[in-house]
Amino acid sequence: MSKVISFATQKGGSGKSTLALVLAAPLATEYGLKIAILDCDYQQSIVKTRKQLDEPSLAILQETDPDATYPYDVFPMALKSIFDFIDNPENDYDLIIIDIPGRADGEDVFNALTGCDAVIVPLVSDYLDRASTAEFMGILEALKKAADKADVDFQYFGLATKRIAGRREEKEMDDYIDELGLSRFQSYLSHRLAYTRASTLHSLLTPAFRNFAGGTKDSSEEIRRVCDELIEKLDLPRRKADEVAAELEESSDTITSSDTITSSETK
């Protein structure tokens, strides 16, 4: 049975769509998970990334490899339709990721969250984001109590994004989350330009694309730690990421910026 998660928060601009993009491709290619993203956000950022930026790159890849395809599926979808998708036995995904609209304050959003095994809340250290996180915790806590009463599995976690090392606000965020009693990932994603260039076609763990996007081995390690922790928390199947990473480093020259990553130049 598929595990279902959402990246959700009370405030737009926290990076939840970016978070889905950063993690989905590595989880599919390096960890071997069958993944679907349901893009329910009004902005359709993930759908637009695939259509406008990655589709031309895939066409170039298919000129030399006709079997080349996307590593995971993306579906534009209204929130009211997600349960039909989740409950369809033909959709045999390991992980379904729901990209929730930016403001989680409507009944349709609340209902969508009830269909998730886990909700992951991007944690941004700015004051206004912290205040919005506190409001959202009330929604998640109500869901958790209802799920516990019904003996249904439901978890929620904070995951620090756009983290800037040594910044005072980061320490304040850590203390704030402790006060709320929010379960959180020990891993995090720093404030890196490469993450805003994430693709639905290429993984940021692939050295050639990572370097093209402006990433480093440090950014790869951050992503890998988040993936490992997510897999552990949700008890998902996995391949050995260290073996895949070694293979990728050895083949880092197989993708070149001149022929297969052309669409990313616009990001």
Rank of each mutant, 00 (worst) to 15 (best):
A246S: 13
I120W: 00
S252C: 10
E232M: 14
A198W: 05
A147N: 06
L234T: 06
L193N: 14
S2T: 12
L234R: 08
A208R: 00
A104Q: 03
L248T: 10
L236D: 10
K48V: 03
R184W: 08
K51C: 01
L95K: 07
T260I: 03
D39Q: 03
L95Q: 05
P66T: 10
P207R: 04
R50I: 09
F157V: 09
K162E: 12
I82A: 05
A134C: 00
I86Q: 06
L193S: 14
G138P: 04
L193E: 13
S125L: 02
H191M: 05
I261R: 10
D253K: 04
G166S: 05
T161H: 03
L27P: 01
G32Y: 09
I100N: 12
I35E: 06
P26A: 02
G13D: 08
P122I: 12
D94R: 01
L234F: 08
D126E: 15
V226S: 10
I98P: 04
A208I: 00
V22L: 07
P101Q: 04
L189E: 05
A8N: 07
L234Q: 10
D178S: 10
Y42I: 13
L79D: 06
T9I: 09
E90P: 00
I82H: 08
A241V: 15
A118M: 11
I97E: 01
R167N: 15
G215Q: 02
T254I: 11
A245T: 14
V74K: 04
D259M: 07
P56A: 13
A25F: 01
G115P: 03
C40E: 09
L61N: 02
L53S: 13
I255F: 07
D174R: 15
T64R: 05
S57R: 01
N91K: 13
R197H: 12
D126Y: 08
T266N: 08
D84G: 04
A142E: 10
Y93I: 00
T49E: 13
D126C: 08
L143Y: 09
Y42A: 14
A25G: 01
Y72H: 14
K80W: 00
A20H: 11
A147W: 06
G102M: 11
G12L: 11
L230Q: 05
A36N: 10
A59Q: 14
D259S: 12
L95M: 06
G181K: 07
V109T: 03
P76N: 01
M1C: 07
Y42P: 06
